[in-house]
Design a protein around this nucleic acid. Structure first.
Length: 220
DNA sequence: ATCCCGAGGG
DNA sequence: CCCTCTGGAT
């Protein structure tokens, strides 16, 4: 099978995004937040945890912790009380206190919008920084999470395993102006149709464009 | 490469 | 029971 041409790959990727957009134009981030700090905290909490679960604990958390100073002034033990039902809650509780201190020391208590600055914050890696920066209109990026990684492989958008390599492939494949929307559409589709355990190919709008259409998961 | 880690679904 | 969820630090 001759390798798919670059222009063909780009055209197919664009069509995939166009169709998912047509099928679910309402796709957007599902975390609840109202400020940059709330966004940053919510995304940090969403690691290995469903957005629905995060949204269950953030109302009380955001009611009691409104500023970087509030997080800097508390203890991990206190935060654990709020985050009990969230995965990795001890790590995240510790990270949030460090995060509050770092925001005060490095950014006057404000949330930076540059991805590099975000990624240097405690508990904030490249993926979380990417999600925050694109939503704060800091810079364009295509952060690769578990959904983007899985769908990129299934759709043949990337053969890489490393998220940084996959992001590089996606950036080359899609026009920059579509990165933000495509990021949200792929995740939305990944949750509602192309999930990890049992992809619903029978009701997938891009099944005919998918190399792994009908192939049950399990490995790869 | 390993650890962290509760909750929901199959 | 096992797998997965918008990962990051060591």
């Amino acid at each position: 099978m001759a390798a798919e041409r670059v222009e063909e790959r780009k055209a197919r990727a664009l069509e995939v995004i166009r169709r998912i957009d047509a099928a679910m134009p309402e796709a957007k981030i599902e975390l609840d937040f109202t400020t940059p700090l709330e966004l940053l905290v919510a995304v940090l909490l969403s690691a290995q945890t469903t957005d629905k679960r995060v949204n269950l604990v953030t109302p009380a958390l955001f009611r009691d912790f409104r500023t970087a100073q509030d997080y800097a002034d508390t203890t991990p033990q206190v935060l654990e009380g709020y985050l009990k039902s969230v995965g990795l809650f001890r790590n995240k509780s510790k990270a949030l206190v460090k995060l509050g201190k770092a925001l005060l020391e490095r950014h006057h208590g404000q949330v930076p919008t540059a991805r590099a600055a975000l990624a240097e914050l405690p508990g904030v890696g490249n993926k979380t920084a990417g999600v925050v920066t694109i939503h704060l209109d800091g810079e364009r990026a295509f952060p690769v999470d578990t959904h983007i990684l899985r769908l990129s492989k299934r759709l043949g958008f990337s053969r890489h395993e490393d998220p940084d390599d996959v992001e590089a492939d996606l950036r080359r494949l899609l026009p920059e102006a579509r990165w933000f929307k495509a990021h949200q559409l792929i995740i939305w589709h990944g949750r509602r149709v192309c999930d990890a355990r049992s992809p619903a190919c029978h009701r997938c709008v891009v099944a005919d464009l998918c190399p792994r259409r009908g192939v049950p998961p399990r490995k790869r």
